[in-house]
């Protein structure tokens, strides 16, 4: 019990320290990484625990982001500038409700979940699985991103939506706002961590892991496995949407590049390197890889892509269990872990 309290204290210090140590610029980058950790948790729920690999999760993330961005844009300009450029003179009907914050916030979850259902229900019901789902998830993300780029007047086209005034009454870039957003991101990641933890402890958690290990057997036990896969996909999309909504005020822009296939694949590698099928793995993976990416692109941008490509190969050949999965297997770590556990009980 004592050790547990110490653990929590240390963790709290680690979380709070950056607020005092880092510059505003760096803190806001760190907040972005924390948002990515939320995405990683959601991808892991679907891939690491249910065994369904989506290479198109960027679309759920971006939809959440767009919903938030539409609200923030309307706060800055009654008629967004890109609409004027495209010759649209009145606000389109589907933009109007986004003037309200509660509506926009609800949409950050409703939009991705709706798409997830549109994708998941027909695909899983017809028995699409494995690599087929993976490839189709990519194609769907491609469809949506083509649509968003094509509808310049309604979505801001390939530039996306930017030029916000601010949020919560603070202008973008305000030091207080940056700290608030950091706190918010950390709070959400902790909340989502515990939501997943709770989900996996229920009988439903046992079921989805059984789907990952032996879906056919589960169907012959009488389970409608497709319903569970749809449910996990929707949950995962909702988490991604929340992350997208947090991303926009932190970074100040949302664009179709966030739903590109490159981005969506990046989500997966965070999980793979961190440790699929572990709760902490994706968080660590997202933080570590994004940190590496930022340092690389500041010093050796040329070589980042080689390293990045190598990461994918490493994640499958060298550390298939990821950082956390591999550590868990190490004996000293396991002993420590068990000791903690028994004390806890």
């Amino acid at each position: 019990m004592k050790q547990k309290i110490i653990c929590i204290l240390v963790l709290a210090v680690i979380i709070i320290l950056p607020v005092f140590l880092l510059s505003d610029f760096r803190l806001s980058i760190l907040s972005k990484f924390v948002v990515f950790a939320i995405v990683a948790i959601s991808v892991n729920l679907l891939w690491g625990y249910t065994g369904v690999l989506s290479l198109g999760h960027g679309v759920y993330f971006a939809l959440g982001g767009y919903a938030m961005a539409m609200y923030m844009k309307l706060q800055a300009q009654p008629l967004p500038d890109f609409m004027e450029w495209s010759g649209i003179e009145t606000l389109p009907w589907f933009w109007k409700p986004f003037q309200s914050l509660p509506f926009a916030l609800a949409m950050t979850v409703i939009l991705p979940v709706t798409l997830a259902l549109l994708v998941g229900v027909p695909l899983f019901k017809s028995g699409t699985k494995g690599v087929y789902f993976t490839i189709i998830s990519q194609a769907i993300t491609l469809i949506v991103s083509i649509l968003f780029v094509g509808q310049q007047g309604f979505t801001g086209g390939s530039n996306g939506i930017t030029g916000f005034k601010g949020v919560f009454g603070y202008p973008i870039g305000d030091p207080t706002l940056i700290k608030i957003l950091y706190g918010l991101a950390v709070a959400v990641v902790i909340a989502i961590y515990f939501v997943s933890k709770f989900m996996l402890r229920t009988h439903g958690g046992v079921i989805i892991q059984a789907i990952r290990d032996r879906e056919t057997r589960l169907r012959f036990l009488g389970y409608r496995t497709d319903s569970f896969k749809i449910l996990t996909l929707a949950t995962s999309a909702a988490m991604c949407g929340v992350a997208g909504a947090l991303f926009v005020p932190i970074v100040g822009i949302i664009s179709p590049s966030l739903m590109s296939i490159l981005m969506s694949t990046e989500f997966v590698i965070w999980v793979a390197i961190g440790g699929r099928g572990t709760l902490l793995g994706p968080i660590i993976g997202a933080l570590v890889i994004n940190y590496a990416k930022t340092s690389f692109s500041e010093s050796l941008p040329e070589y980042w892509w080689y390293f990045y490509g190598f990461l994918f190969i490493a994640a499958t050949l060298i550390v298939p269990k990821g950082i956390v999965g591999t550590l868990k297997e190490k004996e000293w770590f396991q002993n420590r872990f068990n000791k903690l556990k028994t004390e806890h009980e």
Binding site: G130, I269, Y308, F312, A315, T316, L317, P320
Partner: peptide, 23 residues
């Protein structure tokens, strides 16, 4: 050849190869 029984992993590994070849 190390990934024959793991189709999802082969997707990731070949994606990595594709990034390297592009660069």
């Amino acid at each position: 050849r190390k990934l024959y029984a793991r189709p999802l992993d082969s997707i990731l590994a070949t994606w990595g190869i594709s990034l390297i070849l592009q660069q």
